[in-house]
């Protein structure tokens, strides 16, 4: 099972690296989206410091939805059928796709995070915590997106239905991430938010693994 996950995970990333949609399209557009607000409000440093983390999370949600949808949509019906006939468990496919989406989303978050620090200069008391907050949040969004892709898979309305499923469920994850970064900014304790993100990720992972087969067979 681990061998199958690794094989599919590597194939997902290789396919994405060659397609270049995340690194060559989504990252630049995400960066431009972050650039718009400082251009609009000028050099009002206190205001930029205040809204910087919020802008980061909004851009992560909007473009993250695209990243996760791109990942789940890349597997068409023929390839799903092939993997099923090769004996690849649907749960394995979920784990591989979610891991690949989480990694891509984390890379995206690191890039736009760096841009946020440069453009908005937010004050963060202990930035080391970001190494936990960002991957946990990205993993949550990636799993929600992958589950939504499985739910909407095979439907003609997939491309419009899947984002509608992702956003409402991803918003609480982002709220936890945003509260955690706000806690860092204000010098408050953030352990409860880290715990909340961890619990949500575990629940989503279990939900994804347990629902993968029923969703496929339905």
């Amino acid at each position: 099972m681990i061998r199958h996950v690794t094989t599919l995970f590597v194939a997902h990333l290789r396919d994405e690296r060659r397609a270049g949609e995340v690194m060559l399209v989504i990252v630049p557009f995400g960066t431009v989206a972050l650039l718009v607000v400082p251009m609009a409000v000028g050099i009002d440093t206190p205001l930029l410091d205040r809204i910087g983390p919020g802008m980061f999370w909004v851009v992560l949600l909007l473009f993250g939805t695209i990243v996760t949808q791109r990942q789940s949509a890349s597997l068409g019906e023929s390839r799903r059928d092939m993997l099923t006939l090769l004996g690849v468990d649907p749960a394995v496919r979920f784990v591989a796709a979610a891991l690949a989406a989480a990694l891509l989303l984390t890379v995206f978050a690191v890039v736009i995070g760096a841009v946020t620090f440069v453009l908005y200069d937010p004050e963060v008391v202990d930035p080391g915590w970001l190494a936990a907050i960002v991957p946990l949040t990205c993993a949550g969004i990636a799993m929600v997106g992958t589950i939504a892709g499985n739910v909407a898979g095979g439907l003609g309305t997939r491309s419009s239905l899947a984002p509608l499923l992702v956003v409402p469920i991803a918003v609480p994850i982002l709220l936890a991430g945003a509260q955690a970064t706000e806690g860092l900014r204000m010098g408050l304790g953030i352990l409860r938010w880290i715990l909340l993100l961890s619990v949500v990720d575990i629940v989503l992972a279990l939900a994804g693994v347990l629902t993968a087969r029923p969703l496929e067979e339905s």
Partner: peptide, 18 residues
Amino acid sequence: IRPRIGFVAHDPALAPHL
């Protein structure tokens, strides 16, 4: 029995960028 079945649909089951 699934691994003993070979199915070629009209759309190829190939990853486009590999």
